[in-house]
Nucleic acid binder design. Structure first.
Length: 423
RNA sequence: GUGGGCGUAGCCGAGUGGUCUAAGGCACCUGGUUGUGGCCCAGGAGAUCGAGGGUUCGAAUCCCUUCGCCCACCCCA
């Protein structure tokens, strides 16, 4: 039992992070870039609740780790079973159905910045709460939309200044051809079960596609001889994939076909893709997505195709720092208002108030020596210091110090805003 | 969920059983005469040595537990 009388050292919960002002330039840049790029592609913003009826994910993510082992599920005081959003696509699809978006012009193009929660073991680049920039294009199965979504993600990364990313692309078939493929895969592995790792024996039962993704050396032989989905696609899936590839080629979006690429959620169909930075690292995927033509139906809507991507902001920022990608700086403080007498305090407050009304940032010093206030202003990076003392007060003026060149001038109080206005 | 590394002030970091009532640097605060920053100088504040328990005459230093971070697996963004 903890001693309640002792002060507790509170910490942010495991796997969560405080974003401090020093990272503000990154977050602002990533967010504004995402919004800008989404706008360029004709996508509109959507926000869904951070928690929802848990069944949304229990139904759409059945059999996946994300839902079965990592989801935060809780009962609220009214007895409803809710879950912290572990992924956003199903939530957006729920909104699509709920708000009758099938009557909007199709496809409905949506983007979002959203927090996601997964109870897994934290590592660098893997957190229990992270933020995702994602888009969904719902209501059109044309491979052109696949190409558009992938192009948008690639454009987003370029706009952020990330270099050397590679995109891996695969198709995993659909309800027509995948069952037969999975059966063929199972049949192939049946003889090999005693040669593969324990995890793969589990995968054989629960998620056969993942067998292809195993990194254990002992399983590589089995993988090498396994049947390949691309050779067993139905006609429609094959045509779709060929169309997408040709669109990507036309757009000069580079990709590598990775026949072993699988995604974590089972609702994916046909197109799947992931972007990886050049650096090593287990949590390397910086973004990915795919098509989910059966998902809306699972949520009670009419059969409606969809495709989207998600990209983790925290991982993006890790990579931007690693690559020293330049980000716009936050506007520095314009004016620090120093004051040197009891009487000048309120004059300082009023001056700052008026500067802000003129869209000029201002901070008022707290009562200490002028030397201290100037030090303080310097530490805050203020461009100007407005000094209010007995003399200035008496004449209705302020002494304005330019902190770059240390030049001072006397300005009438009403003219300060103009004097600090430009450059 | 599995295996491993680490944890000393806001940050970096010395110290591995006994003058440690814990060094140093950065950052923070104050002062260096009477109203002026960045350099320099002086001073100050700030540490239950992640937390709890144990061993010992004595623990930051050894043992156990726990929390957190990091790495690999797993999973994914």
């Amino acid at each position: 039992m903890a001693d309640e009388s002792k002060p507790v050292r509170f910490q942010a919960p495991r796997g969560t992070n405080d974003v401090l002002p020093e990272d503000e330039p990154y977050w602002r840049f990533v967010r504004s870039t995402g919004e800008r790029v989404a706008g360029l592609f004709g996508y509109r913003a959507i926000e869904t609740p951070m928690f929802e009826d848990a069944r949304i994910w229990l139904r759409t993510g059945e059999g996946t780790e994300v839902v079965e082992k990592e989801m935060y599920v809780f009962e609220d005081r009214g007895g409803d079973r809710l879950a912290l959003r572990p992924e956003t696509t199903a939530a957006v699809c729920r909104a699509y159905v709920e708000h009758g978006m099938s009557s909007w012009p199709q496809p409905v193009r949506l983007f979002y910045f959203a927090q996601k929660f997964r109870y897994d073991r934290p590592q660098a680049g893997r957190y229990r709460q992270h933020t995702e920039f994602g888009v969904e294009a719902i209501g059109d199965s044309d491979a052109l939309v696949d190409a558009e979504v992938i192009d948008m993600l690639s454009t987003f990364y370029q706009a952020l200044g990330l270099r050397g990313l590679t995109m891996q692309l695969n198709t995993i078939g659909d309800a027509t051809c995948r069952p037969a493929y999975v059966e063929a895969l199972r049949a192939y592995y049946r003889q090999l079960l005693d040669t593969v790792c324990a995890d793969c024996r589990m995968r054989y039962e629960k998620n056969p596609l993942r067998l292809l993704d195993c990194k254990q050396p002992q399983c590589q032989g089995a993988i090498a001889g396994a049947p390949v989905i691309s050779e067993r696609l139905c006609e429609d899936c094959a045509a779709h994939f060929a169309g997408l590839r040709s669109h990507l080629d036309a757009l000069d979006v580079a990709y590598e076909i990775n026949p072993r690429l699988v995604r974590g959620l089972d609702y994916y169909t046909r197109t799947v893709f992931e972007f990886h930075p050049p650096e090593e690292g287990a949590q390397s995927a910086v973004g990915g997505g795919g098509r989910y033509d059966g998902l809306i139906e699972l949520l009670g809507g009419r059969r409606t195709p969809g495709i989207g991507f998600g990209s983790g902001i925290e991982r993006l920022i890790i990579n931007m720092k690693r690559q020293q990608a330049p980000v716009p700086e936050i506007e520095p403080l314009r004016v620090y208002v120093a004051h040197m007498s009891e009487a000048a305090r309120q004059a300082a407050l009023r001056l700052a108030h008026r500067l802000r009304a003129n869209d000029i940032s201002a901070v008022v010093g707290t009562g200490r020596s002028l030397k201290s206030q100037l030090r303080h202003a310097d530490a805050l990076g203020a461009r100007y210091v407005a000094i209010l003392g007995e003399q200035e007060l008496a004449r209705g003026e302020v002494t304005l110090r330019d902190m770059r060149d240390s030049q001072q001038q006397t300005v009438a109080e009403p003219d300060v805003a103009q004097a600090v206005g430009d450059s």
